[in-house]
Amino acid sequence: MTSISHHLDEVILLDYHRGRLNAGQTLLVETHLEMCPHCRMSLRLFDAIGASMLDEVLPVDMSDDALELALARIERPEEAPEPRVAPELPAYLKGIELPESVRAAAFKPRYWGAPGVWMAHLDAPKDGRGLTYLMYVKGGMQMPVHDHQGLEMTLVLSGCFSDDRGAYHPGDCVSCDEGDHHSPLIASDDCLCLIAANAPIAPKTLLGKLLQPFARI
């Protein structure tokens, strides 16, 4: 496995640490964390920072019977956690090597955006304009230059793509914020990415046009 060179933004990681991301962004961050010891380390640092503040805080008395209650609670048997049923992997993902976090997530049926390009949305409650989906692009395609209307994070799951800022391999995460524009180029291998966008990159009616094969290499 090539080592990861494009990491999550520290501010995004901190928002994850504080539980402030939506379901799709959380999935993307957890998938990157599964693949990246560097960012796992940042999270440990955040816990240590929080702990330093816990250390300094002036205690507030618990109620009089708090200790008694605590000692009673540890005698009670632990309720078994509800067994977690992993959703069945959709046929279109079978045979692709995927991180555990992605395997455990539920995706809707895929649809084709253009020849050689399919997308599958995360099956999660709607959260504002947020949109999270898998995108599969056949090798050798280029997307035309496009703008972003909000933060968009792209995590490479397999294959590779590049833009004017660099090349991205499995585990790498690229963030585009409002106003950024670029034109990703997919290398010779097919590329599967997980994308979490705060706002769609273009109105849906334009998406098909946007994803037309632009140049073959």
Partner: peptide
């Protein structure tokens, strides 16, 4: 259990405040 009682008394009031 004695260790737990001690730990509880050390940390619960801090966690509550935090």
């Amino acid at each position: 259990r004695a260790a737990y009682a001690q730990l509880f008394s050390q940390y619960a009031p801090k966690l509550k405040a935090f």
